[in-house]
Design a protein around this nucleic acid. Structure first.
Lengths: 219, 219
DNA sequence: ATTACTATATACCGAGTAA
DNA sequence: TTTACTCGGTATATAGTAA
């Protein structure tokens, strides 16, 4: 379906079009795709029509950048490859145990979140989270999770304060079922929070600085 | 070129065909690719012809698995996506540790800067900076940071002297949170200054001439 | 139920060329 | 130089059907 679009999108992304507008002529794109200038021009029009790219058609050179929809399409493909090469249905994320700032506990104990956790994840969470600082080489995996998919726990308002959506993925640590929780409006961070029915530190005898492996299910 | 093959190869791989033979009918494959049984059958023949898959055509059901060539094709695609997304949210800048001229320390110890660092970066900086001479091939990355974005630390006047704005980017060295600081009215330079809550030289055991990698967040 | 042939319909590509 | 028409040739997909 979108098969024929990803080739062109990937080239544009690789040239920097995932960050910002880049100047690229239909001839250049055609060369890189192994097709004619005419076909590349048509492909660009199709991408535009599908909403995968933005274009700024200057007098001399057109400038192109990916839309969020275009980026999401590529990210979805990326996740497929991760599934194939990392594991079948899991993503293995490594990190070390750290002490968080108590935010997780604050969130988990909100009754609205708690009810949804129980309903959508199938367990009643312990009133605290385990914080993992993800190793640099696995941070791109965490980012893929941040972007889409997972189970959405709806946010709510209470006493004038807004609690945003939280994205969850079922996971396991040493064969104990748990879930990783990612606030939707989360800023850049290499910290991953784990919710679980048990007090993971006690149950697994974990202390700060211990290395753990989390197997995250991709549905 | 091989564009039309990867879709089918990916599905076969995802079903386990990257490890071992799997039973998959042309109808099933067609459904998953959004095409007819006839077309999927033809596609399988083409994959066979190109040497991307092995097939064991049993009486009832055919069994398929990827060849090394097929796996390599997918792996090459995977690498492309890694390039795209590893670079999307981070910039990796390499350089060597050098001894600066004490300017960094002079700046960081100004109380107005210090307060803003604490508020906007979330840590109170150690009263000195780590100076990195950026390797030539990464200097264009430094330049793009100089141009815009980041967190702005406002300048001020004191005793008739003007302290200009400083642009900061959250960053990490070996999983230690830090930030790179770039004076706004800075001239061209291949030196990058790092502010951090810790004395990085001591904490990481760095000395002049050591190579370091700084992972800069683009927000 | 399969896989895969043939014949026909459709989508795609690129040469020529206009703006 | 660009981008992007039209149009004719080719490659690709499907329906019908055989084995």
């Amino acid at each position: 379906m979108n098969d024929k679009f990803v080739g062109a999108l990937r080239i544009i992304a690789l040239m920097g079009g995932i960050h910002d507008y880049i100047a690229i002529s239909s001839r250049e794109l055609g060369d890189m795709l192994g097709m004619s200038q005419q076909s590349a021009s048509k492909r660009i029009l199709e991408l535009l029509d599908k909403g995968f790219i933005h274009r700024d058609l200057g007098a001399r050179r057109q400038r192109i950048k990916l839309t969020d929809k275009g980026t999401d399409l590529l990210r979805k493909e990326y996740l497929e490859y991760q599934k194939i090469f990392e594991m079948r249905d899991y993503l293995l994320i490594r990190g070390i145990v750290i002490t968080g700032m108590g935010e997780g506990q604050y969130y988990v104990t909100q009754s609205s979140y708690q009810e949804q956790f129980t309903e959508k994840l199938g367990f009643e969470p312990y009133d605290g989270t385990l914080n993992i600082r993800v190793t640099p080489s696995d941070q791109s995996k965490l980012d893929s999770l941040r972007r889409g998919g997972g189970i959405v726990i709806k946010g709510f308002e209470k006493n004038g304060r807004t609690f945003g959506d939280v994205r969850c993925y079922p996971a396991r640590i040493q064969s104990i079922d748990c879930a990783i929780a990612i606030p939707s409006r989360s800023h850049y961070s290499d910290v991953m929070e784990i919710v679980c029915r048990y007090h993971l530190r006690r149950t697994l005898g974990l202390k700060d600085g211990d290395m753990v492996e989390v197997r995250v299910s991709l549905l």
